[in-house]
């Protein structure tokens, strides 16, 4: 497959993840739509090609790991996992229903293919560092990917982990910051401005890049570059749009957690499916 074809395929995969995520949240009627949608293109690149994983053997020891520290993006991760056949597509309809294996926030003990339990922001960063250390100690060549929200990096624990990862020269750890510029209560710049995220990570000793987080090509290339950075962990700051690909969500000011009507869902899915057809 040519590079162009691969990119096209990843773009399609991203649209499919968006459609399925919308169905999950739309069927329920409410959910963390904004931050799920903004990270979809990165999930498409990770689950669509970059990550070394085996849906038939989800706890394969040599696999790459993903810690989605912004645990509320769970529904988007579940969509990617189901599309990769970690579990049946029908199960996506059970999001947050009583007894479900698909809770709002990622849970390693409930969902096949989820590597780590997250939900209390900041904790995934330390967990990912521990996983990367453990795999390195065993001589594994696997990568640990860590997805952080932009609001999440206001948590002090993130910077504890960032400092220690650099100290440990963890070049098997690649982090993403989903910089969609918004957190629950509004714009990050109005609430607690994050400043220059890339420069902050660089000053902590990380290899840092900044890309268009809605471009699978840019994300894919950035991961390749990150793998080339030896002796230090890497971060990719993703410039994203909260609610991306879902017009009503993009347009809403407060779109962290929102209600979704059947009409909104149908309209947004129709628009996305059209993208799939026209390319």
């Amino acid at each position: 497959m040519s590079g162009q074809e691969k990119i096209r395929e990843l773009e399609k995969f991203a649209v499919q993840i968006r459609v399925e995520t919308l169905k999950e949240i739309g069927t329920l009627g409410f959910g963390h739509l904004g931050g799920a949608m903004s990270i979809v293109d990165t999930l498409a690149v990770l689950y669509g090609g970059v990550m070394n994983i085996d849906p038939q053997n989800p706890s394969w020891e040599e696999r790459d790991w993903l810690v989605c520290s912004k645990g509320h993006a769970g529904p988007a991760v579940y969509a990617a996992l189901a599309l990769r056949k970690f579990f049946p597509m029908e199960e996506l309809e059970t999001l947050n229903k009583p007894g479900t294996r698909l809770p709002s926030h990622c849970d390693r003990n409930l969902t096949t293919g989820i590597d780590m339990t997250t939900g209390s922001l900041g904790q995934g960063a330390s967990l990912a560092v521990g996983i990367a250390l453990g795999n390195r100690l065993d001589g594994r060549t696997s990568y640990t990917y860590l997805i952080l929200g932009d609001g999440e990096i206001q948590e002090g624990q993130v910077w504890e982990a960032v400092l220690y990862a650099a100290h440990q020269k963890l070049d098997n750890l690649i982090a993403f910051v989903d910089y969609n510029k918004k957190q629950l209560d509004g714009y990050t710049k109005d609430i607690n401005d994050l400043g220059d995220i890339k420069a902050k990570f660089e000053s902590f000793g990380w290899h840092a890049q900044e890309v268009d987080g809605s471009s699978v090509r840019e994300i894919y290339e950035a991961i390749e570059k990150a793998k080339g950075a030896k002796g230090r962990p890497s971060v990719i700051v993703l410039h994203t749009v909260k609610g991306k690909g879902c017009r009503f969500a993009e347009n809403a000011f407060l779109n962290h957690h929102m209600t979704v009507s059947k009409e909104q869902m149908a309209e947004a899915i129709a628009e996305l499916e059209q993208q799939l057809q026209t390319g």
Partner: peptide
């Protein structure tokens, strides 16, 4: 030895245990 970072230490310990340590 993570330095003066108790929260990070607990998380790193949990992460290490996820890989079998």
């Amino acid at each position: 030895n993570v330095g003066v970072q108790e929260a990070n230490m607990i998380g790193v310990a949990a992460g290490l245990s996820a890989t079998g340590k």
